[in-house]
Write a protein that binds this DNA or RNA. Structure first.
Length: 708
DNA sequence: ACGGTTGCAACA
DNA sequence: TTGTTGCAA
């Protein structure tokens, strides 16, 4: 559960960009004749006309909804255009949508720290851009404001749909006596409108956006006026907005937690939450969730926009509902092969385009058991070190499956496992690759390890190698991943076209994780050492990127349990005070903060997410890594060739160049602050994250075990 | 057992 | 750490 963090304040300008019925737009760009027509994207045409996964706004007017089958959609909207998701290897192939999403990100990432929230959603932290605009080209000084900006919806403005709504918006944007926060928001609105127009121009996609002071509010706002519109949330409108906002529509509250709030606490709107003390919410839902709830009721959400443009994992899966359930090892193997082929393809693309490798392969499955007492037992997921190469992945996946199956069927002794089995059926299969880290590349990396024999990759769309190094600096003193590599160096062969694969083979070993060479077909009866691949596991954990940093280096407190964070605070009280004072200097005087922050940007980027937004010296002590100077997103960002949809869009990983955190803030200094802001600051300083000790006797037990 | 597929994060 | 669960789109 997300938790408010102290290093962020509501002086930020955050936008959430949400593509409008994205899959439909992708298909309409491919098939221009579909534009303007009621259209839906479906997959698997066989059963009741396929399942709708995206519906155009024209079709929605007819009552067509996602979760309808194609047949139903035809009933309510006979003229609807149904487009099938591309199929490859017998399964849905979403690559076209992934690539289209990357195109969008590559446009949006130009203006600020950018987080890929999903295939069609993005968060942007526009604080710096908005501050710059306010300083250099404040809205009140602009005589011409884009039409697209004037079409913004500003929550709390009267006359929202009145005749001169645009004039109202213009007045709001240009108010010279506006609150500082509102002025920044106005700048944000102008920037976002510009970005959305740029997205449209370069990708032909429309999107909607919310502009607010934090992620939660931006996300809420982006959904309020769709399609192709943007909504601004001034601070003064927050309470009114949340007061009547349905709790179930809040992100994270659409599921069981939201239902529990409704039925257990009678909370139906976010405003209803205000009645409950933080303590009460904590007792019922745990410390972290309780605090989070208390905060969101007040419109507080300190979650950072993570500078991450690339997915953290890749997966490929397929369901086999009902009668299609897989009943033989052979059919499972067939589908695993298909899934692994796709996964392998995508891993290679990621390697080519982003120079990243995945370290863990995981298999998920769902199964049913016929007539067994514990037939509801779940098929366990299994993972192992990921070895590159399609057939290796296929072998490993099958072994993982068989390990899971043995566990699943337990000691139910079905001696005969012939071609057909009558005890189990597989209803879904999925393989995924995770723990994806940048490979060492460029001047300090592969070339070094390969003695300069690695050919430079002309096909790479990565703008500069140092992008990777920003993300993962090499260990100053022989990182474990290096040693893991070195131990295999003697096995390498350096063929020009294949050095990459040799590197990967070297990295991940040449034994399959079960340690036996006998292949599929006999796995069921064979006890393998699949679940204890000692050597492989060691290499895998050693390859963890975080371990490449010296132990004493400051980490992002995000990933640190709260109590540890406090311990750190006490050791650095002086620095903390320094930070917060600068913070408030910035808060009241944006003109001075700008240079400081830019200075921090340049430095902070060197240290790869380590360091502080406000202390420009805190990272100098840990900056052991030599890295290039130019690190801003604008500079490393690649042009995508102006909307050629066929080429897989590359998205640079500009992550850490925009990611800065406060290291520590000493809570005691809050007392020295002006009273009117003390409460707010205390909210930021609230528990980052604590070990989730559930207070006994509360209904939390019931909540987490609803059926027991 | 038909909302499928994909991905993220928290928790035990 | 790994596996599980929940959530979202």
């Amino acid at each position: 559960m997300p938790v408010a963090t102290p290093e962020t304040s509501d002086a930020r300008i955050i936008t959430h960009v949400d593509m409008d019925c994205f899959y439909v737009q992708v298909e309409q760009r491919k098939q221009q004749n579909l534009r303007g027509l009621p259209t839906a994207v479906i997959q698997y045409n066989s059963y009741k006309g396929g399942a709708l996964i995206a519906v155009s706004y024209e079709a929605r007017k007819f009552g067509v909804k996602r979760s309808m089958r194609g047949d139903e959609a035809k009933e309510v909207c006979p003229q609807i255009q149904l487009v099938q998701v591309p199929v490859a290897r017998g399964k849905a192939d979403l690559n076209a949508y992934r690539n289209a999403g990357s195109e969008v990100i590559s446009v949006l990432a130009r203006k600020g720290r950018c987080e890929r929230a999903s295939i069609d959603e993005v968060y942007l932290d526009l604080t710096d851009a908005a501050e710059t605009m306010l300083k250099e080209a404040a809205p009140e000084n602009l005589d011409d404001i884009e039409e697209e900006v004037l079409k913004s919806h500003v929550l709390g403005l009267h006359n929202e749909d009145g005749t001169d709504a645009k004039e109202e918006v213009r007045k709001w944007l240009c108010r010279s006596d506006a609150d500082y926060h509102d002025k920044l928001l106005a700048c944000g609105a102008i920037i976002v409108a510009e970005l959305r127009m740029q997205v449209l121009k370069e990708t032909e996609f429309t999107c909607s956006a919310g502009i607010a002071h934090n992620k939660m509010l931006a996300k809420l706002a982006s959904a309020m006026n769709k399609p192709a519109q943007q909504t601004v949330v001034p601070r003064s409108s927050v309470n009114g907005l949340l007061e009547s906002f349905p709790i179930k529509k809040m992100k994270q509250l659409g599921g069981k937690l939201g239902s529990s709030l409704q039925t257990d606490l009678g909370v139906n709107t976010v405003g209803d939450l205000l009645k409950f003390s933080e303590d009460k919410l904590q007792r019922r839902y745990g410390i972290n969730t309780g605090t989070w709830l208390w905060n969101i009721a007040r419109g507080i959400s300190g979650e950072e926009v993570e500078g991450r443009l690339l997915p953290k994992s890749h997966g490929s899966g397929k369901t086999f509902p009902g009668p299609q359930a897989l009943k033989t090892i052979a059919s499972v193997q067939h589908w695993l092969n298909q899934l692994c082929e796709e996964l392998s393809d995508r891993l290679h693309s990621d390697l080519d385009q982003n120079k990243r490798i995945a370290h863990t392969l995981t298999l998920h499955a769902r199964a049913y058991k016929t007539g067994d007492s514990d037939s509801h037992k779940k098929f366990p997921s299994k993972s192992c070190p990921l070895r590159y190469g399609t057939t290796k992945i296929q072998e490993d996946a099958l072994n993982l499956f068989q390990a899971g199956l043995r566990e699943y069927i337990g000691f139910c002794n079905n001696k005969i496992q012939g071609t057909q089995n009558n005890s189990w059926g597989i209803t879904s299969l999925a393989v995924s690759a995770s723990k994806i880290v940048p490979i060492p590349s460029g001047t300090h990396s592969i070339v070094k390890y390969f003695g300069g024999q690695l050919p430079s990759r002309s096909s790479s769309k990565l703008p500069r190698d140092n992008v990777i190094e920003e993300a993962t600096p090499l260990s100053p003193s022989g990182s474990e991943s290096c040693s893991g590599l070195n131990s295999y160096e003697s096995q390498l062969e350096y063929s020009e076209e294949d050095a990459k694969m040799k590197y990967l083979k070297a990295s991940f070993g040449q034994q399959d994780p079960s340690g036996n060479s006998s292949r599929q077909g006999d796995g069921l009866t064979e006890e393998s050492s699949l679940l204890s691949p000692q050597g492989n596991e060691n290499r895998m954990t050693q390859g963890e990127p975080r371990q490449e940093f010296p132990e004493e280096e400051p980490r992002r407190i995000h990933s640190m349990p709260r109590l540890k964070a406090i311990e750190k605070k006490n050791t650095a009280k002086e620095k903390g005070s320094c930070s917060i004072l600068k913070l408030f200097k910035n808060y009241h005087d944006p003109s001075t903060s700008l240079e400081q922050k830019h200075a921090a940007n340049a430095e902070g980027a060197k240290t790869s997410s380590i360091g502080s937004e406000f202390t420009s010296n805190s990272y100098s002590t840990c900056n052991q890594v030599e890295l290039p100077k130019e690190t801003h997103c604008e500079e490393i960002e690649t042009s995508n060739g102006g909307g050629s949809s066929s080429s897989a869009a590359h998205v640079p990983q500009g992550r850490q160049s925009w990611s800065y955190k406060i290291d520590e803030i000493d809570p005691s200094i809050v007392d020295e602050l002006p009273p009117e802001i003390q409460q707010e600051v205390r909210a930021w300083l609230r528990p980052l994250k604590r070990p989730n000790v559930v207070k006994r006797g509360s209904s939390i037990t019931h909540y987490f075990h609803p059926n027991k």
